[in-house]
Computed example of a mutant assay.
Amino acid sequence: MGAIIRWGILGCGHIAKKFATDLLLVKDARLVAVGSRSMAKADAFAAAFPVEYKHDSYEALAANPAVDVIYIATPHSLHYENVLLCLQHGKAILCEKPFAMNSRQTKAMINLAKEKKVFLMEALWSKFLPQYDKVQEMLSQGKLGAVKSVLVNFGFKPLAPVSPRLYDPLLGGGSIMDIGIYNAFLAMSILGKPDIIEASMTAAPTGVDEQCAVLFKYNNGAVAQLFSTFATDLATEADICGTEGRIRLTSRFFDPTARIEYYSGRLDTREVVEVPREDGFGYQYEARHVTECLQKGLTESPVMRFADTLELMETLDAIRKAAGIKYAADE
Protein backbone atom coordinates (compact mmCIF):
# COMPACT_ATOMS: atom_id res chain seq x y z
CA MET A 1 0.00 0.00 0.00
CA GLY A 2 1.35 3.41 -0.98
CA ALA A 3 1.07 6.70 0.83
CA ILE A 4 -2.43 8.07 1.23
CA ILE A 5 -2.98 11.01 -1.13
CA ARG A 6 -5.27 13.62 0.41
CA TRP A 7 -7.63 15.29 -2.07
CA GLY A 8 -9.47 18.57 -1.99
CA ILE A 9 -12.18 19.66 -4.42
CA LEU A 10 -12.46 23.27 -5.56
CA GLY A 11 -16.00 24.02 -6.71
CA CYS A 12 -19.18 22.21 -5.66
CA GLY A 13 -21.10 21.72 -8.89
CA HIS A 14 -22.50 18.64 -10.62
CA ILE A 15 -19.20 17.31 -11.97
CA ALA A 16 -17.51 17.77 -8.57
CA LYS A 17 -20.10 15.48 -7.02
CA LYS A 18 -19.52 12.81 -9.66
CA PHE A 19 -15.78 13.03 -9.12
CA ALA A 20 -16.18 12.77 -5.34
CA THR A 21 -18.30 9.65 -5.81
CA ASP A 22 -15.69 7.99 -8.00
CA LEU A 23 -12.82 8.98 -5.72
CA LEU A 24 -14.19 6.43 -3.27
CA LEU A 25 -13.15 3.75 -5.80
CA VAL A 26 -9.49 4.82 -5.79
CA LYS A 27 -7.13 3.00 -3.45
CA ASP A 28 -4.87 5.31 -1.43
CA ALA A 29 -7.00 8.37 -2.26
CA ARG A 30 -9.00 10.18 0.42
CA LEU A 31 -11.22 13.25 0.06
CA VAL A 32 -10.41 15.50 3.01
CA ALA A 33 -11.50 19.00 2.01
CA VAL A 34 -13.84 21.04 -0.15
CA GLY A 35 -13.77 24.71 -1.08
CA SER A 36 -16.56 26.94 -2.31
CA ARG A 37 -17.29 30.65 -2.50
CA SER A 38 -20.00 30.16 0.11
CA MET A 39 -20.09 28.09 3.28
CA ALA A 40 -23.68 27.07 2.51
CA LYS A 41 -22.53 25.30 -0.67
CA ALA A 42 -19.55 23.76 1.11
CA ASP A 43 -21.84 22.50 3.89
CA ALA A 44 -24.29 21.04 1.38
CA PHE A 45 -21.49 19.25 -0.45
CA ALA A 46 -20.03 17.91 2.80
CA ALA A 47 -23.43 16.58 3.81
CA ALA A 48 -23.25 14.19 0.85
CA PHE A 49 -19.47 13.67 0.95
CA PRO A 50 -18.20 14.02 4.53
CA VAL A 51 -14.83 15.78 4.75
CA GLU A 52 -12.62 17.00 7.57
CA TYR A 53 -12.33 20.52 6.20
CA LYS A 54 -14.96 22.83 4.70
CA HIS A 55 -13.81 26.16 3.30
CA ASP A 56 -15.85 29.20 2.24
CA SER A 57 -13.14 30.43 -0.11
CA TYR A 58 -10.84 28.94 -2.70
CA GLU A 59 -7.90 30.65 -1.01
CA ALA A 60 -8.53 28.80 2.26
CA LEU A 61 -8.62 25.44 0.48
CA ALA A 62 -5.41 26.19 -1.42
CA ALA A 63 -3.70 27.15 1.85
CA ASN A 64 -4.80 24.04 3.77
CA PRO A 65 -1.62 22.07 4.67
CA ALA A 66 -3.66 18.86 5.04
CA VAL A 67 -4.39 18.78 1.29
CA ASP A 68 -1.97 17.20 -1.21
CA VAL A 69 -3.85 17.65 -4.48
CA ILE A 70 -6.83 19.72 -5.62
CA TYR A 71 -9.38 18.84 -8.27
CA ILE A 72 -10.60 22.03 -9.93
CA ALA A 73 -14.23 21.78 -11.03
CA THR A 74 -15.19 25.41 -11.66
CA PRO A 75 -16.48 26.93 -14.94
CA HIS A 76 -14.01 27.11 -17.83
CA SER A 77 -13.16 30.79 -17.50
CA LEU A 78 -12.08 30.39 -13.86
CA HIS A 79 -9.55 27.60 -14.42
CA TYR A 80 -6.67 29.97 -15.11
CA GLU A 81 -6.94 31.95 -11.88
CA ASN A 82 -7.85 28.87 -9.82
CA VAL A 83 -4.83 26.90 -11.06
CA LEU A 84 -2.42 29.78 -10.47
CA LEU A 85 -3.79 30.23 -6.94
CA CYS A 86 -3.29 26.56 -6.07
CA LEU A 87 0.16 26.41 -7.66
CA GLN A 88 1.27 29.44 -5.65
CA HIS A 89 0.40 27.42 -2.54
CA GLY A 90 2.34 24.39 -3.79
CA LYS A 91 -0.69 22.20 -4.36
CA ALA A 92 -0.74 19.47 -7.00
CA ILE A 93 -3.65 19.95 -9.40
CA LEU A 94 -6.04 18.02 -11.60
CA CYS A 95 -7.90 20.69 -13.60
CA GLU A 96 -11.10 20.02 -15.52
CA LYS A 97 -11.16 20.42 -19.27
CA PRO A 98 -10.91 22.72 -21.09
CA PHE A 99 -7.69 23.40 -19.22
CA ALA A 100 -7.93 27.15 -19.89
CA MET A 101 -9.55 29.61 -22.28
CA ASN A 102 -6.63 29.79 -24.71
CA SER A 103 -3.03 28.71 -25.27
CA ARG A 104 -1.62 31.90 -23.70
CA GLN A 105 -3.22 31.00 -20.37
CA THR A 106 -2.22 27.35 -20.82
CA LYS A 107 1.46 28.23 -21.27
CA ALA A 108 1.42 30.43 -18.17
CA MET A 109 -0.13 27.65 -16.08
CA ILE A 110 2.35 25.05 -17.29
CA ASN A 111 5.32 27.38 -16.83
CA LEU A 112 4.36 28.13 -13.23
CA ALA A 113 3.94 24.41 -12.49
CA LYS A 114 7.42 23.77 -13.87
CA GLU A 115 8.86 26.68 -11.89
CA LYS A 116 7.23 25.46 -8.67
CA LYS A 117 8.01 21.80 -9.48
CA VAL A 118 4.39 20.95 -8.70
CA PHE A 119 2.22 18.32 -10.43
CA LEU A 120 -0.38 19.65 -12.86
CA MET A 121 -2.63 17.74 -15.27
CA GLU A 122 -5.66 18.41 -17.43
CA ALA A 123 -8.64 16.25 -16.48
CA LEU A 124 -9.45 14.92 -19.93
CA TRP A 125 -11.00 11.80 -18.49
CA SER A 126 -11.70 10.08 -21.82
CA LYS A 127 -7.98 9.47 -22.33
CA PHE A 128 -7.92 7.21 -19.26
CA LEU A 129 -10.98 5.09 -20.06
CA PRO A 130 -10.62 1.39 -20.98
CA GLN A 131 -12.23 1.81 -24.40
CA TYR A 132 -9.76 4.54 -25.34
CA ASP A 133 -6.88 2.16 -24.59
CA LYS A 134 -8.61 -0.60 -26.55
CA VAL A 135 -9.11 1.59 -29.63
CA GLN A 136 -5.43 2.57 -29.54
CA GLU A 137 -4.49 -1.10 -29.26
CA MET A 138 -6.66 -2.01 -32.27
CA LEU A 139 -5.11 0.79 -34.33
CA SER A 140 -1.59 -0.29 -33.42
CA GLN A 141 -2.47 -3.85 -34.48
CA GLY A 142 -3.43 -2.56 -37.92
CA LYS A 143 -7.09 -3.54 -37.60
CA LEU A 144 -8.16 -0.59 -39.76
CA GLY A 145 -5.21 -0.40 -42.13
CA ALA A 146 -4.52 3.25 -42.99
CA VAL A 147 -7.00 5.56 -41.28
CA LYS A 148 -8.58 7.87 -43.85
CA SER A 149 -11.37 9.60 -41.96
CA VAL A 150 -12.76 10.30 -38.50
CA LEU A 151 -16.37 11.41 -38.05
CA VAL A 152 -17.53 12.63 -34.64
CA ASN A 153 -20.83 14.14 -33.49
CA PHE A 154 -21.62 15.45 -30.01
CA GLY A 155 -24.82 17.33 -29.33
CA PHE A 156 -27.73 17.73 -26.95
CA LYS A 157 -30.53 20.16 -26.21
CA PRO A 158 -30.01 21.42 -22.65
CA LEU A 159 -32.92 20.63 -20.35
CA ALA A 160 -34.60 23.31 -18.25
CA PRO A 161 -33.40 24.85 -16.06
CA VAL A 162 -30.52 25.45 -18.49
CA SER A 163 -27.14 25.84 -16.81
CA PRO A 164 -26.00 29.47 -17.30
CA ARG A 165 -22.43 28.39 -18.04
CA LEU A 166 -23.45 26.76 -21.35
CA TYR A 167 -24.31 30.09 -22.98
CA ASP A 168 -22.51 32.71 -20.88
CA PRO A 169 -19.42 34.05 -22.69
CA LEU A 170 -17.97 35.20 -19.35
CA LEU A 171 -17.99 31.57 -18.19
CA GLY A 172 -16.51 30.23 -21.42
CA GLY A 173 -19.84 29.05 -22.77
CA GLY A 174 -20.41 27.57 -26.22
CA SER A 175 -20.41 24.11 -27.74
CA ILE A 176 -16.80 23.96 -28.92
CA MET A 177 -15.23 24.52 -25.50
CA ASP A 178 -17.77 22.47 -23.57
CA ILE A 179 -18.27 19.38 -25.76
CA GLY A 180 -16.47 19.98 -29.07
CA ILE A 181 -13.20 19.52 -27.20
CA TYR A 182 -13.98 15.79 -26.99
CA ASN A 183 -14.40 15.64 -30.76
CA ALA A 184 -11.08 17.38 -31.36
CA PHE A 185 -9.31 15.23 -28.79
CA LEU A 186 -10.54 11.98 -30.34
CA ALA A 187 -9.60 13.00 -33.87
CA MET A 188 -6.15 14.17 -32.78
CA SER A 189 -5.52 11.01 -30.75
CA ILE A 190 -5.92 9.06 -33.98
CA LEU A 191 -4.68 11.35 -36.75
CA GLY A 192 -2.50 13.83 -34.86
CA LYS A 193 -2.48 17.60 -35.12
CA PRO A 194 -4.24 18.73 -38.33
CA ASP A 195 -2.36 20.54 -41.08
CA ILE A 196 -5.38 22.63 -42.09
CA ILE A 197 -8.39 23.64 -39.97
CA GLU A 198 -11.70 24.94 -41.31
CA ALA A 199 -14.62 25.81 -39.06
CA SER A 200 -17.99 27.55 -39.05
CA MET A 201 -20.40 28.30 -36.24
CA THR A 202 -23.93 29.50 -35.64
CA ALA A 203 -24.21 31.87 -32.72
CA ALA A 204 -26.59 31.74 -29.78
CA PRO A 205 -28.23 35.05 -28.72
CA THR A 206 -25.41 35.52 -26.20
CA GLY A 207 -22.81 35.36 -28.98
CA VAL A 208 -21.25 32.00 -28.11
CA ASP A 209 -21.39 29.13 -30.59
CA GLU A 210 -24.59 27.14 -30.32
CA GLN A 211 -23.32 24.91 -33.13
CA CYS A 212 -19.83 24.44 -34.57
CA ALA A 213 -18.78 22.42 -37.62
CA VAL A 214 -15.07 21.66 -37.92
CA LEU A 215 -12.98 20.08 -40.68
CA PHE A 216 -9.45 18.83 -40.05
CA LYS A 217 -7.34 18.19 -43.16
CA TYR A 218 -4.06 16.28 -43.22
CA ASN A 219 -1.30 16.32 -45.78
CA ASN A 220 -1.52 12.52 -46.07
CA GLY A 221 -5.09 12.84 -47.38
CA ALA A 222 -6.92 11.98 -44.16
CA VAL A 223 -9.79 14.16 -42.92
CA ALA A 224 -11.80 14.53 -39.72
CA GLN A 225 -15.31 15.94 -39.66
CA LEU A 226 -16.44 17.16 -36.23
CA PHE A 227 -19.77 18.65 -35.18
CA SER A 228 -20.95 19.97 -31.80
CA THR A 229 -24.32 21.49 -30.97
CA PHE A 230 -26.66 22.63 -28.21
CA ALA A 231 -29.51 22.98 -30.73
CA THR A 232 -30.38 19.31 -31.33
CA ASP A 233 -30.01 15.92 -29.72
CA LEU A 234 -27.42 13.86 -31.60
CA ALA A 235 -26.44 10.22 -31.37
CA THR A 236 -23.07 11.39 -30.03
CA GLU A 237 -21.10 8.69 -31.80
CA ALA A 238 -17.74 8.40 -33.54
CA ASP A 239 -16.58 6.49 -36.62
CA ILE A 240 -12.91 5.79 -37.30
CA CYS A 241 -12.56 4.59 -40.89
CA GLY A 242 -9.59 2.92 -42.52
CA THR A 243 -8.67 1.01 -45.66
CA GLU A 244 -9.27 -2.35 -43.95
CA GLY A 245 -12.18 -1.64 -41.63
CA ARG A 246 -14.05 0.70 -39.32
CA ILE A 247 -14.35 1.23 -35.59
CA ARG A 248 -17.60 2.70 -34.31
CA LEU A 249 -17.89 4.12 -30.81
CA THR A 250 -21.57 4.09 -29.94
CA SER A 251 -23.61 6.70 -28.11
CA ARG A 252 -21.68 8.77 -25.57
CA PHE A 253 -18.40 7.84 -27.26
CA PHE A 254 -16.51 9.89 -24.67
CA ASP A 255 -17.57 8.01 -21.53
CA PRO A 256 -17.40 4.42 -20.17
CA THR A 257 -20.86 3.46 -21.43
CA ALA A 258 -19.78 3.56 -25.09
CA ARG A 259 -19.54 0.25 -26.94
CA ILE A 260 -16.82 -0.51 -29.49
CA GLU A 261 -18.06 -2.05 -32.74
CA TYR A 262 -15.55 -3.31 -35.30
CA TYR A 263 -16.44 -3.73 -38.96
CA SER A 264 -13.93 -5.50 -41.19
CA GLY A 265 -13.54 -6.19 -44.88
CA ARG A 266 -16.55 -4.94 -46.83
CA LEU A 267 -18.05 -3.68 -43.54
CA ASP A 268 -20.76 -6.35 -43.60
CA THR A 269 -19.56 -8.02 -40.42
CA ARG A 270 -19.89 -6.53 -36.97
CA GLU A 271 -17.91 -7.55 -33.91
CA VAL A 272 -18.69 -6.05 -30.51
CA VAL A 273 -15.36 -5.61 -28.76
CA GLU A 274 -15.53 -6.22 -25.04
CA VAL A 275 -13.62 -4.02 -22.62
CA PRO A 276 -13.48 -4.25 -18.81
CA ARG A 277 -15.69 -1.77 -16.99
CA GLU A 278 -15.81 -0.76 -13.36
CA ASP A 279 -18.67 0.70 -11.38
CA GLY A 280 -18.82 4.47 -11.15
CA PHE A 281 -19.08 7.34 -13.61
CA GLY A 282 -15.58 6.88 -15.02
CA TYR A 283 -13.64 9.63 -13.24
CA GLN A 284 -11.84 7.11 -11.05
CA TYR A 285 -9.44 6.22 -13.87
CA GLU A 286 -7.90 9.70 -14.09
CA ALA A 287 -8.02 10.10 -10.29
CA ARG A 288 -6.21 6.79 -9.88
CA HIS A 289 -3.56 7.89 -12.37
CA VAL A 290 -2.96 11.19 -10.55
CA THR A 291 -2.80 9.43 -7.19
CA GLU A 292 -0.16 7.04 -8.53
CA CYS A 293 1.81 9.89 -10.13
CA LEU A 294 1.95 11.71 -6.80
CA GLN A 295 3.00 8.56 -4.96
CA LYS A 296 5.91 8.33 -7.41
CA GLY A 297 6.84 11.97 -6.91
CA LEU A 298 6.11 12.95 -10.53
CA THR A 299 5.43 16.56 -11.51
CA GLU A 300 4.01 15.73 -14.95
CA SER A 301 1.79 12.92 -16.18
CA PRO A 302 3.43 10.55 -18.68
CA VAL A 303 -0.03 9.99 -20.22
CA MET A 304 -1.62 13.47 -20.34
CA ARG A 305 1.57 15.44 -20.89
CA PHE A 306 1.94 19.22 -20.91
CA ALA A 307 2.67 18.95 -24.64
CA ASP A 308 -0.65 17.14 -25.19
CA THR A 309 -2.62 19.79 -23.33
CA LEU A 310 -0.89 22.63 -25.13
CA GLU A 311 -1.35 21.05 -28.56
CA LEU A 312 -5.07 20.52 -27.91
CA MET A 313 -5.52 24.10 -26.72
CA GLU A 314 -3.63 25.50 -29.71
CA THR A 315 -5.96 23.51 -31.94
CA LEU A 316 -9.02 24.86 -30.12
CA ASP A 317 -7.60 28.37 -30.59
CA ALA A 318 -7.29 27.71 -34.32
CA ILE A 319 -10.84 26.35 -34.50
CA ARG A 320 -12.22 29.42 -32.73
CA LYS A 321 -10.23 31.77 -34.96
CA ALA A 322 -11.55 30.06 -38.10
CA ALA A 323 -15.13 30.11 -36.80
CA GLY A 324 -15.01 33.63 -35.35
CA ILE A 325 -15.47 32.63 -31.71
CA LYS A 326 -13.91 35.07 -29.22
CA TYR A 327 -13.82 35.46 -25.45
CA ALA A 328 -12.74 38.27 -23.15
CA ALA A 329 -9.69 36.19 -22.19
CA ASP A 330 -8.43 36.53 -25.77
CA GLU A 331 -8.02 40.30 -25.48
Rank of each mutant, 00 (worst) to 15 (best):
Phe230Gly: 01
Lys107Phe: 07
Ala287Val: 12
Ile181Gln: 00
Ala258Asp: 01
Gly245Trp: 04
Ala160Thr: 12
Arg104Asn: 07
Leu294Cys: 07
Ile190Gln: 03
Gln88Thr: 12
Ala213Ile: 06
Ile5Trp: 06
Ala47Met: 11
Ser163Pro: 00
Gln136Cys: 12
Pro130Asn: 05
Val223Asp: 04
Ile93Cys: 15
Ala44Asn: 13
Leu10Asn: 06
Asp317Glu: 13
Leu316Ile: 15
Thr106Val: 06
Ala3Trp: 02
Leu249Lys: 10
Asp133Gln: 12
Leu61Ile: 05
Glu314Ala: 08
Met177Gly: 04
Val118Ala: 08
Tyr58Val: 00
Gly13Arg: 05
Glu237Phe: 00
Glu274Asn: 10
Met101Gly: 09
Thr309Tyr: 06
Lys107Tyr: 10
Ile15Tyr: 03
Trp125Ser: 14
Ser57Met: 09
Pro98Leu: 13
Phe253Trp: 03
Lys27Trp: 02
Leu171Thr: 04
Leu234Cys: 03
Leu170Ser: 14
Ile247Gln: 05
Glu122Ile: 02
Glu261Met: 06
Ile181Ala: 00
Ala40Gly: 08
Asp268Asn: 10
Asp308Leu: 10
Leu124Glu: 09
Thr74Glu: 05
Ser175Val: 11
Leu94Trp: 05
Ser140His: 14
Leu129Asn: 05
Ala33Lys: 10
Ala63Pro: 03
Met177Tyr: 08
Ser36Cys: 13
Glu52Thr: 15
Phe306Arg: 03
Asp279Thr: 04
Pro50Asn: 13
Trp7Tyr: 14
Leu78Pro: 00
Ser251Trp: 04
Leu249Arg: 07
Gln88His: 13
Leu84Glu: 13
Asp330Lys: 11
Leu25Arg: 12
Tyr262Trp: 10
Ala42Thr: 08
Gly145Phe: 11
Gly174Met: 10
Met1Asn: 06
Gly280Gln: 02
Lys143Tyr: 07
Leu226Asn: 04
Leu10Phe: 06
Thr202Cys: 07
Glu278Lys: 14
Glu286His: 08
Ala63Cys: 02
Gly2His: 05
Ala328Leu: 15
Ala287Ile: 11
Asp28His: 08
Thr243Glu: 13
Cys212Val: 12
Ala329Glu: 15
Ala258Lys: 00
Val290Asn: 02
Glu311Leu: 12
Met313Val: 14
Met109Glu: 14
Pro130Arg: 02
Arg248Gly: 03
Ser57Ala: 06
Ala204Asn: 10
Ala231Leu: 07
Ala60Ile: 05
Val152Glu: 00
Gly221Glu: 04
Arg6Cys: 11
Ser38Asp: 09
Leu84Phe: 12
Glu274Arg: 10
Arg266Ser: 10
Tyr182Arg: 01
Ile176His: 04
Cys212Glu: 06
Ala42Asn: 11
Gly221Asp: 04
Ala322Trp: 03
Phe128Ala: 12
Val214Glu: 00
Asp133Lys: 12
Lys117Cys: 03
Phe99Gly: 03
Pro130Ala: 06
Gly142Arg: 14
Ser38Val: 06
Leu94Val: 08
Leu10Trp: 05
Ile319Gly: 01
Leu166Ser: 00
Tyr263Asn: 05
Gly90Met: 12
Leu144Met: 15
Lys41Arg: 14
Ala322Ile: 11
His89Ala: 08
